[in-house]
Design a protein around this nucleic acid. Sequence first.
DNA 1: CTTAGTGCAAAACCTTTGCAACTCT
DNA 2: AGAGTTGCAAAGGTTTTGCACTAAG
Lengths: 148, 148
Amino acid sequence: MINMVDLKEKLRERQYKLTSQRQTILQSFIDNPDRHLSAEDVYNIVRLQSPDLGLATVYRTLELLSELDILQKLDFGDGRSRYEINEMSTPHHHHHLICLSCGRVREFEDDLLETLETAIARKSKFMIVDHQLKFYGYCQECQEKGED
Amino acid sequence: MINMVDLKEKLRERQYKLTSQRQTILQSFIDNPDRHLSAEDVYNIVRLQSPDLGLATVYRTLELLSELDILQKLDFGDGRSRYEINEMSTPHHHHHLICLSCGRVREFEDDLLETLETAIARKSKFMIVDHQLKFYGYCQECQEKGED
DNA sequence: CTTAGTGCAAAACCTTTGCAACTCT
DNA sequence: AGAGTTGCAAAGGTTTTGCACTAAG
């Protein structure tokens, strides 16, 4: 898991500065490990502690942290980008189960896709560096409550 | 492959009307089978034959056709939604290889994911109805032109 | 004739940008 | 000191909505 020392190091490598805003924004992800925060979500969280931190700074920081591979940008089709900490140290990614009824997003751990990735890379001569897999369907709760 | 008769039938099932605009918009997808058209793309295509067709109608029709499972909504992270004809009759989906250098999107046929889907459904009690898989990397051309 | 659909313009969102003031290194 | 960063407000781009008018069933 990323921490503030890693952040400082990653920033220094590229001559970016370690500002309190950037620390605060990263902290909001560390404090909310299970969520997929949008820019506005982050803005509302950091507002409580740092009322002067602007929304534009949130956007700029989210982009920067994605560029540094500290965050991963996600899209669940709800009209805004969402982000989560990029656990790139672990060799197996997790994917998302998106419920079409209640909209909840659940994580799913998976190793099997690595095999598929290798096969595709070989067959298509495409150098794969990342993937995103989303499953759409109905979660157990919504199945029990009856069809939608 | 979907045709106008299917469209009419699907619309009638739900008491929607078959308008010339809806036919024109679906036709633009039939005429461009390899592309992932955005609302604006569709607007520019249909404009040539139907100059009075409005952009709002394009948006409304794309949403409607997605609801009817005639189109599938896609997101490649370029800030706008894209659509393609939903080939739900075929049991194997295709996925997308997105080049991080030139931005081109290539299709990739795959059967292997069906196995994975079944396994996930069983393990997680999630009823899967659809999935989307995107690989990010570098296409052969960009690899040959040197790293980015 | 009744209900749904359209076109237009305005509004609503999310995200980006210009710029003067500010703050890390 | 100097380069990068911030906040604010304005602008940009995509998508949605209100409403009078039109067209399909």
